[in-house]
Write a protein that binds this DNA or RNA. Sequence first.
DNA 1: CTGAAAGCGCTTACAG
DNA 2: CTGAAAGCGCTTACAG
Lengths: 349, 349
Amino acid sequence: MDNDVDTRTERDRRHQQARASLNIQAVADAAGVSKTTVSHVLSGNRPVSAATRRKVERVMDELGYRPNFFAQALNSKKSQTIALIAQDITNPFYPALARGLQTSVARANQVVMLFDAGGGQNLTRAFVDEIIQRQVDGVVVAVSNVEDELLELQRAGIAVVAVGSGLSGLPIDWVSGDDERIGSDATMHLHLAGHSRIATISGPPSAEPGTGRLAGYVKAMNELGLGVDPKLCAVGDWTKEGGADALLRLLEQAEPPTAVFCANDLMAIGALGAALESGLRVPDDLAIIGVDDIDAASLVRPALTTVHVPVQEIGRAAGDLLLHRIAEPTETSHRHVLVQHSLVQRQSV
Amino acid sequence: MDNDVDTRTERDRRHQQARASLNIQAVADAAGVSKTTVSHVLSGNRPVSAATRRKVERVMDELGYRPNFFAQALNSKKSQTIALIAQDITNPFYPALARGLQTSVARANQVVMLFDAGGGQNLTRAFVDEIIQRQVDGVVVAVSNVEDELLELQRAGIAVVAVGSGLSGLPIDWVSGDDERIGSDATMHLHLAGHSRIATISGPPSAEPGTGRLAGYVKAMNELGLGVDPKLCAVGDWTKEGGADALLRLLEQAEPPTAVFCANDLMAIGALGAALESGLRVPDDLAIIGVDDIDAASLVRPALTTVHVPVQEIGRAAGDLLLHRIAEPTETSHRHVLVQHSLVQRQSV
DNA sequence: CTGAAAGCGCTTACAG
DNA sequence: CTGAAAGCGCTTACAG
């Protein structure tokens, strides 16, 4: 009995010690090489003979050794961490972006740290400080109107990629959807469906990504020779209610539209409801097309025809740009990736 | 000129050096104290005289000193990082969870690292390794059927909180909605609206959180003295199509139901569509209630009456449990928080 | 209330 | 191909 207890105690203590000092030195001792060599087996930063490498790797396996992450980071100045600043993670755009980003950066052993601004703006400042302090390798900024913060992150030596619109001027890599083509493609689609009296419900003035989508509508209408009738241009606020109100205003016209391009799905769904309540049949009396392809687009009746923006691909592209920038921090030229959309034909056109 | 250049070069070099060595020693030198004291001003781990503290803080400010995150983590063994393993970040449940979690842990200066399993299961194993290696302070696991992984994380000395159902047996803190009460409350609501022939469309057998919701329905029907008619119990698969099919089967009965409790909103929206297409008026001929309060619930017509589960609060509760566990790692008793739901009355009941 | 010194577990010139 | 040693920037007994 006593013996048993002693043995167990002894074993536990050795185990404790072994765990407490299961560091690179322990591996080196067990393998009969120097810490230097163990380190190079881990990093691959310099050649190691095949025999030595095998020996070291076996020992690591047997001991269950894992390098200390913080010691590695402290020395290498690499945190293997990417930050994502998202305007509002409860908006489905951002989770899809996060998914794509993770998919891309995982292959470089990078992990995603999430900073959710909660829909507000004020948190971004604090996030930037936190991000700099944590010495992340890169950051994807998906918040608008934060030029100063983008540049500050860059100055701190962090690779930066922006997601969104209206960033053309800055010396920054960025990714966005092709809003102008979204607007013109949607408008063209309505025209191909036989419409020529085509209205639009845009977002609030000078707010991205609405400006580009409106510009696309204008371009298409002009190219089609239909011209732009100001009475067919209503302004919404991105919400369902705003879309409903805007549609009712459009229907008050002497010559109401037979089709409407809404700059996002929420407004399109609001317009759809308002149209049905006004006794119109959709798409027979009024065709409606939205943008975003949110979940609800396929759930409303009639199901909404819309423009699908592949948000995960935006995230993946952002990750790719980031990995490139991390590898080539001094490259002076900056890239802009325009991710292309597709049309999802359902029942409202 | 030459002088200018020299001066600038000189200044730059000094600047470089200053930046390269802007560490705790530099602060100590500038403040005329030891590294030890600077460290304690930072951590508050031992008293420092008011005068010394002020002096050190001023110097830190002037130099723009920020402690090196990795050196701190290496020594303190605290990463100030919480991992969130999410089953599928594109499912709106998880972003809301993440928001609540961030809200809770931010007050302890913790940051959220996101691990999105992408809807699959296989990634969780790899995540667990990564999380252990990165020595996070805590982890919230919102994936089902990963008991082994939960225990492994615990063994690695990481604070663990699980989110979900069916975890009663494990020595683990966890948070969940009150599925049984959700089921009985929804059923009761239909009864209060005047119905007694109440059907249910549940999730696949023995899949959480469906089991609890079905149990709640059964309990309420029995307590109401209505009894449970097997012909009124249809099984769905959580999807819109599954809900539509299940409803059509229920309507084939000799005595069809006048109300149906669907275990989630997607099935409820499918049932809603099928009912309307069958020529039924909702809620006059058939009342429908769902669970989750997804975005689409308020966008379909008639808008869906549903049970709202405050997912952000689940996240906040998980964060609170985690912070407690981090502070008291050895506490032997484990907590279970049941977050309470509420009924959102719209137009389908 | 304060400091000198050892230690955390790595990486990386430098040297051979 | 390999190693001894300095260094990364902190924290924390230990000592006074």
